[in-house]
Amino acid sequence: MITNIYFVRHAHSTYTPDELNRPLSESGLKDARKVTQLLSEENITHVVSSPYKRAIQTVEGIAKELGLNILIEDDFRERRLADHSVDHFEEVILRYWEDFNFHLSGGESGYGAQERGIKSLESILDSYRGGNIVIGTHGNIMVLMMNYYDPQYHYDFWRNLDMPDIYKLSFEDKKLLEVKRICT
């Protein structure tokens, strides 16, 4: 039985230091409507999201259109880089991708974030077997989960993601069969 996961990287957000409540920007809200249009043709059965507002806002349109509740899954939140603001973001993020054991003070290593995300993803695969599940999430944690199944999903792939972006992952049980980008 095939289960399809639609990873939705959130649309553009308006920066605030409050990670949990950072909202989508005006262009992000417009792009979220495109996400709804694209996913409305995919026979979606469940909608799950990170607890971050920008992820929820990106997938709430499809949930409303289909009359589905959004299940909030804390483990689909973005990877925490540090317990302080990070200077030289690009250099630090590259180091995180080069060494999955690396982490700054208060940060989450690649392996730690990947394990967290995969545990929740596999729970979703077990709970909604045969379904078409939308997961509103974030670029880094999304690619870490994809990397678990196929190492071609790494730093360069992450750098080239759009906001928003949608990837359909087809599984048989917990074996990844195919990845397909759904253009936004």
Rank of each mutant, 00 (worst) to 15 (best):
M1E: 05
I2P: 12
N4F: 14
I5G: 09
I5M: 03
I5P: 02
F7C: 01
F7A: 02
R9D: 15
A11D: 12
H12A: 10
S13N: 10
S13R: 04
T14N: 06
T16K: 09
D18V: 12
D18H: 12
L20F: 02
S25L: 08
E26Y: 09
E26W: 08
E26L: 14
S27K: 15
L29M: 13
K30R: 08
K30S: 11
D31Y: 07
R33A: 14
K34D: 07
T36C: 12
L38T: 02
L39G: 03
L39A: 08
E41M: 10
E42A: 06
I44M: 04
T45Q: 03
T45F: 04
H46F: 01
V47A: 03
V47K: 02
V48A: 09
S50W: 11
S50P: 04
S50V: 03
P51I: 00
P51F: 04
P51S: 04
Y52N: 07
R54T: 01
A55Q: 07
Q57V: 07
T58P: 04
T58W: 04
V59H: 13
V59A: 09
E60G: 13
G61T: 04
G61M: 05
K64H: 10
G67E: 03
I70V: 06
L71T: 15
F76M: 13
F76H: 06
R77W: 06
E78F: 03
R79L: 08
R79H: 10
R79Q: 11
A82W: 06
D83C: 08
H84L: 06
S85Y: 05
S85D: 15
S85A: 12
I93R: 03
L94Y: 11
R95T: 15
W97N: 00
W97L: 01
W97E: 01
E98K: 15
E98L: 15
F102L: 08
F102Q: 12
H103F: 13
H103M: 07
L104T: 01
G107Q: 00
G110K: 14
G112V: 15
Q114L: 06
E115S: 15
K119R: 15
K119Q: 14
L121Y: 05
E122R: 13
S127G: 11
S127H: 13
S127T: 08
G130A: 02
G131R: 11
G131I: 07
N132T: 08
N132S: 09
V134H: 15
I135C: 05
H138W: 05
N140V: 08
N140T: 12
I141E: 14
M142G: 01
M142H: 01
M145E: 14
M145A: 06
M145K: 04
Y148N: 13
P151D: 06
P151C: 00
Q152Y: 10
Q152G: 05
H154D: 11
H154M: 08
Y155I: 01
Y155C: 01
Y155E: 10
W158R: 09
R159E: 12
R159F: 00
N160F: 00
L161G: 06
Y167E: 04
K168P: 09
K168M: 08
K168N: 05
S170R: 02
E172N: 10
D173C: 09
K174A: 01
K175G: 02
L177S: 02
L177V: 06
L177T: 08
L177P: 11
E178D: 11
E178P: 05
T184I: 07
